[in-house]
Amino acid sequence: MAAAENAPSAGEYILHHLTFLSNKTPHGIVDFSVINLDSVFFAVLLAAAFGGSFYLAARTATAGVPGKFQNFVELVVEFVDNQVKDTFHGSSKVIAPLALTIFCWVFLFNAMDLLPVDLLPALAHGAGIEHLKVVPTTDLNVTFGMSLTVFILIIYYSIKMKGLGGFIRELTLQPFTSKNVAVQAILVPINLLLELVTLFARPVSLALRLFGNLYAGEMIFLLLALLTLSSGFGGLATVGGWLGLIAQGVLGLAWAIFHILVITLQAFIFMVLTVVYLAMANEHH
């Protein structure tokens, strides 16, 4: 917590926590000259953590008796592999590794939420960095970055499996069909509209679901932190300060424990939906 003297107001505190470490202040909704350095840093760091540890496990993997870490990695790999096999019946070298990457990476992103909300920002502050958002999945750019990549893969697989004509037919000739050519011609724009909404809803919902859940989770932690914000260490001299501390501890613990579920579940949902979407793109209707 910040010291009691010159303590920020609740609004300032939360706004401070919701501000990215950027190269410059963004203007407007879309500004491609801005980059969120904290999101990129943690994304790359966690990518390295996942890639590095799994690469290490893969390099030392034996068909004999596996070590403890190899066991863990195999557990994750087998879990993802089963999920993919249940949903995706085609043959693709990309989808299973993609699912593993999504699950582990998003899980690590989300798990950053379990670190005390002020820990890394306070350390960064000590190092002279003003703002630091620790959880990359509370950045829309990160979640959209992933979901748009998945979207590109959906389009790629749709065209690869059905051909461009097949893909367009799928977008225009269903769900409403008619044997009468004139009626069908009228139905085409309606179908196209419906199918395009369905198509574009996929990346949007993927990104927003993950972002919303983690953003809300982080917000709760921030709100709980407000309980001791104004009092600081000086609050320990008063009964109210102690009550606030206990309340923050108990509620924070409860929310963190519940959040373990959210973290895992959101990573899992992102993975499964990606596989489902790609499976649908891979199938003929």
Binding site: S22, I35, A43, A47, W105, G145
Partner: peptide
């Protein structure tokens, strides 16, 4: 806001998928 982080994230994601 939406910014360059999106593009960078996509690149990192694609590289990580490729690596995996």
């Amino acid at each position: 806001n939406i910014n360059l982080t999106l593009i960078v994230q996509m690149l990192v994601f694609i590289i990580l998928i490729w690596f995996t």
